[in-house]
Design a protein around this nucleic acid. Structure first.
Length: 425
DNA sequence: CCTGGAGTTGTCCTA
DNA sequence: TTAGGACAACTCCAG
C-alpha cells in the first residue's frame, strides 16, 4: 500500500493546518506521524510538562482519527533513524511538513530531505506557523530588519488576511489502527503542571490590563502558538483594530523568529559584540536564590515562584526578574535564559533569547544598559494592592520572608559601573 | 552617500 | 507634588 506521510511537529491540530490540508487534498491514504525526538527528549526531566502537553494533545488528535477508522503513528527515536525505518516499512512517495525555522529544525529537515530524495520521495514544505516567514519582511535593500518598529510597519503593510481552511476530509486518511503509547512508554511520567486553554474574550482590554499581574488578564495563548494547537491565522481573524497592542506582541514573535534565522549566533553570543566585555559575577549561590524565588524582593520572588509552580510568568514580571538577574546580580543572561527554557510552557528559543538579550541590554533594539528596573517601584506601580505577590509568596510580610539579598541602590550603581567598564574595553 | 529622526515596557534627581 | 531632564551615545532606517 502506498501512503503519504504527514509529519506533525509544532502544528498539533487538525484545523487550519496548511500542510495537512494539502496532503489530504492531493493524496489518498495520508498517514499522520509524530516523532518523539530523542535528541530533544534526552535533555528534559522525566516529568517535563511540555512533553506531557504534547502527549495529551496527540492523544486527543488520535481519538478523533480513530472515530474515522484511522490513527496517528507515534514513533520515538532520532528522526533520521525513524525515517530510515519508515522508508523500509512503507511505500512512500510524498511527505508533507509545515516549516520550522529554528536552527536545530532547519538542520534536521535538511537531513531528512536528503534521505527522502535518495529514496525518490518528495518533501513538501509549507508556511504555517507564522504570518510572514523569515525573508518576507525585509528592508528595501533586501537585508533583514534589526529594529522592531520599522519591522512592524513593514509587516503590517504586507499583511493580507487569509481564509481559514475548510474542515478536513477524514476519509482521506490511511485506515489503520495503531496503539497510542502511554506517557510511561515514551519514557516520561505525568506532570502536575498543565497548559491552560487560551482565552481571548478580554483581549480588547489588553492594552489597559497587560501590565498588572494581579488582574489575571493574560490570554495564556503562548503555549498554544508554540505547539500549534491553534493557528496564527485563526488568532489574527479574531482581532480588531482596537487590539493593536496585542497584535504588536504577535509581531514581536515573528520579529525575533527572523532575527534568530538571520543571526543564529545570538543563540550563544551577544547580538552586539560591544557588550562582550561585561564582567559577569555569576555567583552560583545568588543564582540559586533567584531560581527559587528567595531574593527578598517580593515581585521578583513571586514571578520565579509562579514560573516554578505553574510554567507561566506574567510578561511584566518576566522583565523585572530578568533585569534583576542581569543587573542587580550581574549574572550572565545565558544562565537566566537556560532556566526559563527549562521551566516555561511557552518556551520558544527565538522569543526567549531575544527577550533575554533585550533585558540584558546586549540584543538588537535592546533596552539601554542604564535602564535598570527598580523591583520596589515596579511593585508599587503594577501590583500596588499586592494581590499577585501574596498569591505566589505566601510568607510575604512575615518573619519567614527573607530580607533583600542585595541593596537596590548599591546594585544599581554597581551595574552601571560594570556595564560601563565592559563597554569601554 | 548624506541626513535627520527615532528607538517596547525606567529611574532618579532637581527645580 | 510634579514635571522635566539626565543617564550615553549609537545605530538603524527611510527619504
Amino acid at each position: 500500500m502506498n501512503v503519504t506521510l504527514f509529519w506533525f511537529r509544532r502544528d498539533l491540530r487538525l484545523e487550519d493546518n496548511t500542510a495537512l490540508q494539502a496532503a489530504l487534498e492531493n493524496n489518498p491514504h495520508v498517514l499522520p506521524l509524530f516523532i518523539f525526538d530523542e535528541n530533544i527528549l534526552q535533555q528534559l526531566p522525566e516529568d517535563d510538562s511540555r512533553v506531557n502537553f504534547i502527549h495529551h494533545t496527540l492523544q486527543k488528535i488520535d481519538q478523533r482519527l480513530k472515530e474515522h477508522h484511522s490513527s496517528l503513528l507515534i514513533k520515538k527515536g532520532k528522526p533520521e533513524d525513524v525515517w530510515k525505518a519508515l522508508i523500509t516499512n512503507y511505500t512512500i512517495k510524498n511527505v508533507y511538513i509545515n516549516k520550522d525555522y529554528e536552527p536545530y529544525a532547519l538542520k534536521r529537515d535538511q537531513q531528512i530531505e536528503q534521505l527522502l530524495e535518495k529514496n525518490n520521495i518528495t518533501l513538501h514544505r509549507f508556511k504555517d506557523q507564522v504570518i510572514h516567514e523569515e525573508s518576507e519582511v525585509m528592508k528595501a535593500d533586501g537585508t533583514p530588519y534589526t529594529v522592531f518598529t520599522p519591522y512592524k510597519n513593514r509587516w503590517l503593510e504586507a499583511y493580507r488576511p487569509k481564509q481559514i481552511l475548510p474542515d478536513i476530509n477524514f476519509q482521506k486518511f490511511y485506515q489503520a489502527q495503531y496503539d497510542f503509547p502511554t506517557i510511561k512508554e515514551i519514557g516520561f511520567s505525568p506532570s502536575k503542571i498543565l497548559v491552560k486553554p487560551y482565552n481571548l474574550s478580554d483581549i480588547h482590554q489588553y492594552a489597559n490590563n497587560r501590565n498588572y499581574p494581579g488582574l489575571e488578564a493574560t490570554s495564556y495563548l503562548s503555549p498554544h502558538l508554540r505547539f500549534g494547537t491553534v493557528s496564527i491565522r485563526e488568532i489574527m481573524s479574531t482581532l480588531t483594530n482596537r487590539d493593536d497592542v496585542f497584535l504588536s506582541e504577535l509581531i514581536w514573535r515573528e520579529f525575533f523568529m527572523q532575527i534568530l534565522f538571520h543571526f543564529p549566533k545570538v543563540t550563544t553570543e551577544n547580538f552586539r559584540a560591544k557588550y562582550d566585555g561585561i564582567q559577569w559575577l555569576n555567583n552560583e549561590t545568588d543564582f540559586e536564590k533567584w531560581c527559587k524565588g528567595q531574593t527578598g524582593y517580593p515581585l521578583v520572588d513571586a514571578g520565579m515562584r509562579e514560573l516554578n509552580e505553574s510554567g507561566y510568568m506574567h510578561n511584566r514580571v518576566r522583565m523585572v526578574t530578568a533585569s534583576f538577574l542581569c543587573k542587580h546580580l550581574l549574572i550572565d543572561w545565558r544562565w537566566g535564559e537556560a532556566y526559563f527554557a527549562q521551566k516555561l510552557l511557552d518556551y520558544e528559543l527565538s522569543s526567549n533569547n531575544g527577550n533575554w538579550q533585550w533585558a540584558a541590554g546586549t540584543g538588537c533594539d535592546a533596552a539601554p544598559y542604564f535602564r535598570i528596573f527598580n523591583p520596589i517601584e515596579q511593585l508599587k506601580k503594577f501590583d500596588s494592592s499586592e494581590v499577585y505577590v501574596k498569591k505566589w509568596v505566601s510568607e510575604y510580610g512575615t518573619t519567614a520572608y527573607p530580607s533583600p539579598m542585595v541593596n537596590h541602590s548599591f546594585a544599581r550603581a554597581r551595574a552601571l559601573d560594570v556595564y560601563k567598564a565592559g563597554i569601554d574595553q
